[in-house]
């Protein structure tokens, strides 16, 4: 038997689009909580296989935008359309678990892992939408259920390799250091084999070395697997280095959009960040 090299035998990209095609279209969404407006007419487009960064001061509506895309918030006006599997999904009318099945995965600003599960089980639970074995065969762990678990374990091991976390496979997530938890959360989102990956501050609270690692993982996922990534990040150095395009929000409105260079020279952006 020829030597089989480990790593990346399984594709991580769940999108059926070609690079550059429009994958997500946010159309003029308005979101308010009571009288407090969070988003006031934001529109943007995400293209297949790009890294789009969303930046803006605190309270600009970045997380609200992500929560609207993943179905946790329901905008009062506007639509969010997502293209995958040759279909047009109207995310604003779908429930979060349906949006996940359509191919949108995400991580959270404050780590929201399943704390009492091992790293392995957290990652396996990320593949939930792809598992098919029924309740009955699962209870008996019969042929199909067992084969499915083993097949997904093989896939999950790829992600474990990619994120360089083999040593902590069997550790309970709650006992891990912060930086590793962030990594596991990225892994859990990848286990969904996403078409679109939303990352809410993947590098918050990390030191430079951890940020470098995380940036490398994000670039690997994007460049080697072609997964589209939308990320919110406050570290301008990281944003300028890894993103293809940048969208700037302020007070719930989009004030600029373009390549990192264009955005960094935009007077409205400079004003929003530095004041008058």
């Amino acid at each position: 038997m020829p030597l089989q090299l480990r790593g990346f035998r399984h594709p991580l990209n769940g999108s059926t689009l070609e690079p550059g095609q429009t994958q997500l279209r946010v159309e003029n969404i308005h979101l308010a909580f009571g009288g407090v407006g969070a988003l006031a007419g934001v529109s943007l487009e995400v293209r297949q296989s790009e890294i789009l960064a969303i930046i803006g001061p605190n309270g600009a509506g970045k997380t609200s935008l992500l929560n609207s895309i993943s179905g946790l918030y329901h905008p009062q006006k506007g639509r969010i359309v997502f293209y995958n599997h040759g279909r047009e999904y109207e995310l604003t009318r779908m429930k979060p678990h349906q949006i996940a099945a359509a191919g949108v995965a995400r991580s959270f600003q404050n780590i929201e892992l399943f704390r009492h599960m091992t790293v392995l089980d957290n990652l396996m639970s990320g593949a939930h939408v792809h598992m098919r074995a029924g309740l009955f065969s699962s209870l008996f762990y019969w042929g199909p259920a067992q084969r499915e678990q083993i097949a997904f374990r093989d896939f999950i091991e790829d992600i474990i390799d990619l994120l360089e976390i083999p040593a902590i496979r069997y550790k309970k997530v709650g006992a891990l250091a912060y930086g590793l938890q962030k990594r596991v959360e990225l892994g859990r989102a990848l286990a969904m084999r996403p078409a679109l990956l939303l990352l809410d501050e993947p590098m918050a609270g990390m030191n430079t070395e951890e940020k470098e690692d995380m940036a490398r993982f994000i670039l690997d996922v994007n460049e080697e697997h072609g997964v589209t990534i939308v990320l919110i990040e406050h570290d301008m150095g990281v944003v300028m280095d890894i993103s293809d395009r940048v969208v700037v929000l302020n007070f719930g409105r989009k004030i600029a959009e373009g390549t990192p260079e264009e955005v960094s020279k935009n007077p409205a952006v400079i004003e929003a960040y530095l004041g008058h």
Binding site: S70, L72, A100, E112, F114, H116, S125, R188, M192
Partner: peptide, 17 residues
């Protein structure tokens, strides 16, 4: 795993599908 996910973090469970 879905049961435990609901116990530990129900919003994350929903977003994971």
């Amino acid at each position: 795993r879905a049961f435990i996910a609901i116990r530990d973090q129900d919003i994350a469970a929903e977003v994971m599908g």
